[in-house]
Design a protein around this nucleic acid. Structure first.
Lengths: 112, 112
DNA sequence: AAAAACAATAGACCATTGTCCATGGTTGAG
DNA sequence: CTCAACCATGGACAATGGTCTATTGTTTTT
């Protein structure tokens, strides 16, 4: 699909999609048209983008996402990949703990 | 206490403390010395800073923190304050949900 | 054919969240 | 007294995550 369709389906702007692509979060290929240089995005990209939307809200950085994308690439050693992903999961859980603390603190200001 | 002590006790750098102060997260008073203009921070500041440390890790912005600080001020209407804090709690819970989703996604890439 | 919508690329621009530096004055230890 | 450590203020600088604009070319619609 082309960038416009991907934008519409993912909810990200074209600019943001290009920004993510520049940062290695997704990849596209140049179509085989002789007349234009429009890029082609696979459904894969859409899947990733949907994950990115939630992941960004969860507080993950673009660099985090990149390392995840790279880890899940075929070329990446399975052991290394597992370690990277595990690390990210732990970071997320730590953040969840901090959220729990913050919520308790705020609830206290309400009742206290 | 002076900024150095506050920095040491809170774990934030002097610069960050000044930055937070400029952004209305904490306040200090000018001491009553005739010879210097050193600022004085109350224990209150330390309590806030300790909360900020976790809250920032939880993904709250400085603007978020500011609205919380303002809401808990004496001068703020209790009803308004409650609404602000409730809102922040909900945002945190949403973020926690997103974290849950991201964790599940990542765990899937490990097992799947 | 002409206009509207879409695309690629590159670079400028913006807010956020700090950090670092320069300057100049103060305090405390030795 | 002097030197190190501290403080205040202000401004520069940097990374992150986008967004906007300009330019140029393509496709689609009318």
């Amino acid at each position: 699909m082309r960038i416009g369709e991907l934008a519409q389906k993912s909810g990200f702007s074209r600019d943001t999609i290009r920004f993510y692509e520049q940062n290695g979060l997704i990849t596209s290929t140049v179509g085989d048209s002789e007349t234009n240089s429009y890029r082609n995005y696979k459904n894969d990209c859409l899947v990733w983008l949907k994950f990115f939307a939630g992941a960004r809200e969860a507080g993950m950085s673009v660099a985090d996402l990149r390392s995840i994308v790279e880890a899940t690439a075929e070329s990446c050693d399975r052991e290394v990949a597992r370690a990277v992903i595990q690390r990210k999961i732990e970071e997320l859980k730590e953040r969840a703990d901090q959220i729990g603390n913050a919520v308790r603190f705020l609830e206290n200001t309400l009742s206290g």
